[in-house]
């Protein structure tokens, strides 16, 4: 068992435990914190897979910006404990049953069906996944999608402002 494999198992255990903790925690603030921990763990996995730039984007954009936005909204609404009233009685068991079925299906596909088709992880050059190489691909082959992304972000920004605008002030 190599160092990388041991590290992978530790990270995988942390990722799955934090994901399940996010699911079962009653307080939304704790759920956000568990999700941040999960994202950082996955970012370390990205580092193991030669994706340093994506790992940094994951930490800054996902764990930093997006999850802070979640925290802001939860604290703004005071919605830490929003779940009152009764669950549907069959909802939980049915969801776990369907999830178990999906585990079996995906496990079958990943571990038996496609075994010969999956390439192994071989050694690659040091520059694979570096910011320079990502930028090279992003601004040459994927320039148009990149520009479309900027328009999408602008539309999302305008949409968020319009949705949360206070209409009473406009009438007066």
């Amino acid at each position: 068992m190599t160092q990388e494999l041991i590290l992978f198992f530790i990270l995988a255990a942390v990722a799955i435990v934090t994901a399940i903790s996010m699911l079962v925690s009653k307080n939304s603030i704790y759920a956000v914190m568990f999700l941040v921990l999960n994202f950082v763990t996955v970012a370390v996995l990205y580092l193991l897979l030669n994706a340093a730039f994506i790992a940094m984007v994951q930490v800054t954009v996902y764990a930093g910006a997006i999850m802070v936005l979640f925290l802001f909204v939860i604290m703004l609404l005071g919605a830490e404990k929003a779940e009152k009233g009764k669950d549907l009685p069959w909802q939980g068991p049915l969801a776990i049953l369907l999830g178990g079925a999906l585990v079996l299906e995906l496990g079958y596909i990943i571990f038996s069906q496609q075994r010969g088709l999956l390439p192994g992880i071989e050694a690659v050059s040091e520059s694979f996944g570096s910011p320079a190489s990502i930028g090279d691909v992003l601004f040459n082959r994927y320039l148009v999608p990149f520009e479309v992304t900027s328009i999408l972000l602008l539309v999302a920004m305008v949409g968020a402002i319009i949705l949360t605008r206070d209409e009473r002030e406009e009438k007066s």
Partner: peptide, 11 residues
């Protein structure tokens, strides 16, 4: 030498 692809996909 390193992590099998299927383990990562399983995670």
């Amino acid at each position: 030498m390193s992590i099998p692809t299927s383990y990562l996909l399983a995670l």
